[in-house]
Design a binder for these strands. Structure first.
Lengths: 151, 151
DNA sequence: ATTATTGCAAACGCTTTGCACTCCC
DNA sequence: GGGAGTGCAAAGCGTTTGCAATAAT
């Protein structure tokens, strides 16, 4: 999926959910899918501001939520009490390993996880819309020697 | 594991890590393992204050962190940008299903998850210290009709 | 005695809210 | 034209921090 089809998909989503089609929303979409790696809402806001956008915080926060509902972004939480987003455009679904020493985040995917989600949900009587799976630990490579905060 | 052995374990942990043994820390431990279900640090602080404790916020936050490191509590995050804790005393390890409609949290466990954690970690070169696995969705029972916020 | 730990209050970072203005439908 | 969406600033909430006082080692 490229930028073009992401626009089309978002437009369809907005129509279907009876949200209005505004230029600001597509501006956020463009910056979000161009962002390398994971980002927080405020980071994206600051980045957009620094590239001379007139966007407001409220609009960025609101639109990222819509983009996650629409499936164009994934909403993540790596245990830092802040929401992170990640573009799904051109990527396969995956989960994360987080190094609690140096903050490095690595991706992995395992088809068994989806199977577990389905099996458990049907056993319990639950209609799953998503899941999050993070592994925390320390990376064993030699570059990882210091704490996230440099302490 | 009961209250008694939790105390002993925490004491050993504090000694080993060269932290001091203080009455405040055991006061937090007692309230934490008596709490039914998941709780936020501030909730526990308020509850302790209302039962006439002299504890401070800083001590509660600090001690919960130690208890989680020690393994007596689990640290959770259900995507609300706040840390939740849960006592492990007398419980087996488990993960959670979260209903995004009514906020109900259900527990499950599946031994395959631990296997995946180990397999992926060794493949990538990572020493895992923990993981989090949450499934989000809607519960299909009839009691679940309203949004978390009552909207 | 030394120094980690405590209680307090204020600051912090991310997110949400209230408001008047705007512009999509 | 009506009302959802916007920009702005301020408030909200959970959490962390700085500091002087206290108490564990």
């Amino acid at each position: 999926m490229d930028r073009q089809s992401a626009h089309e998909e978002f437009r369809r989503f907005l129509k279907r959910e009876e949200n209005r089609i505004t230029p600001e929303r597509f501006e956020v979409l463009d910056h979000a899918i161009e962002y390398e790696g994971h980002f927080g809402a405020d980071e994206l806001y600051v980045q957009m501001k620094s590239s001379h956008s007139n966007i407001s915080r409220a609009t960025v926060y609101n639109t990222l939520e819509l983009l996650a509902q629409c499936g164009i972004l994934s909403k993540r939480n790596f245990g830092e009490n802040k929401t992170r987003y990640e573009s799904n455009v051109g990527k396969i679904s995956h989960d994360h390993l987080i190094c609690t020493n140096c903050g490095t985040i690595k991706e992995f995917s395992d088809p068994k996880i989806q199977k577990i989600v389905k099996k458990i949900s049907s056993e319990i009587g639950f209609d799953p819309t998503g899941y999050s799976f993070n592994i925390f630990g320390k990376c064993t490579n030699s570059n990882c020697s210091h704490n996230i905060n440099g302490k």
